[in-house]
């Protein structure tokens, strides 16, 4: 399977996940958006050595995965490119911060190891939260929630249309790539000498498509403001659910739950 095929297939996979039916999928998109934002902010705000404080934040994905029916394996597969990147960025601390902070048996644990683990865990948790949001919410509902939050219409429309046309661009790219490879036997990938014309063609095609698309929108009354269907009002029930969820996340951030639990036994 070529990289282009793989990209298209991954896009379809995300669509399928977002179309599933589960208690999490059926939540109002604004609830999910706000809770995810709160979770990411709280998780990212942990100090660099606060591993025990960060640990209980795992509870969030640990609850959402089974409730939404999203397989953890899919999430891990999506992160295959990001995990090494996180490890590379975080690993400098291993060498720069070599103070021993405690020992595990005979093995000294350095401050660098702790900060590396905290950095890595924070990265994974924040990415997982974002993944869960996208995997449990269709993009149109997500865009409706972003508009409810007051994000500029142009930005949200751009986001929505980008998603819609990524697949079309992938098809376009696939066709051009196939046409190229059929006339360039034995070559691996596209030779750099044709990158310019290849991208230029893609740009020209995109511009033609964009012009026709805009005409199509104008013909159906588009006045610059996208109106979204299928997203109900933010009810009292949704407000309470958001408040309780965000409250629980803030509680986990402010109170060192691991230490509190450990204190009960010491």
């Amino acid at each position: 399977m070529s990289q282009i095929d793989r990209a298209a297939s991954e896009l379809r996979e995300m669509d399928d996940l977002a179309m599933k039916v589960s208690p999490i999928h059926s939540l109002h998109p604004l609830v999910k958006l706000l809770v995810t934002a709160a979770y990411i902010v709280c998780t990212a705000s942990f100090p660099k050595y606060d591993l025990s404080g960060l640990f209980p934040m795992i509870l969030y994905p640990a609850l959402i995965f089974p409730m939404s029916g999203i397989p953890v394996s899919v999430c891990l597969r999506k992160f295959r490119a990001v995990i090494p990147l996180l490890a590379v960025v975080g690993c400098f601390d291993l060498f720069l911060d070599r103070r021993t902070v405690f020992s595990l048996g005979n093995i000294p644990v350095t401050a660098g190891m702790v900060s590396f683990t905290v950095f890595f865990l924070k990265g994974i948790l924040c990415l997982t939260a974002s993944f869960l949001l996208v995997a449990t919410t269709t993009l149109d509902r997500l865009c409706a929630a972003l508009r409810m939050l007051g994000l500029p219409s142009a930005l949200v429309t751009l986001f929505l249309l980008t998603f819609r046309y990524v697949s079309v661009m992938i098809d376009e790219l696939y066709a051009m790539n196939t046409a190229y490879l059929l006339r360039a036997p034995g070559q691996k990938g596209i030779h750099y000498s044709v990158w310019g014309s290849f991208l230029g063609q893609l740009l020209l095609r995109s511009m033609d498509r964009a012009a026709e698309l805009y005409e199509s929108m104008q013909l159906r009354g588009f006045d610059g403001d996208m109106r979204y269907a299928g997203c109900s009002q933010f009810s009292l029930h949704d407000i309470i659910l958001t408040a309780v969820s965000v409250g629980a996340i803030v509680f986990l951030r402010l109170v060192n739950f691991s230490r509190l639990l450990g204190g009960l036994f010491v």
């Binding site: 269709t138 149109d140 026709e212 199509s216 013909l219 159906r220 269907a229």
Partner: peptide, 25 residues
């Protein structure tokens, strides 16, 4: 107007959203 290239006409993510687009506008 029904365009020759339906991809350029169906710009919303789902069929429902797209059919409703003009009506809401």
């Amino acid at each position: 107007f029904v365009l020759q290239n339906s991809d350029n006409q169906m710009f919303m993510p789902t069929v429902k959203e797209d059919v409703m687009f003009g009506l809401l506008n």
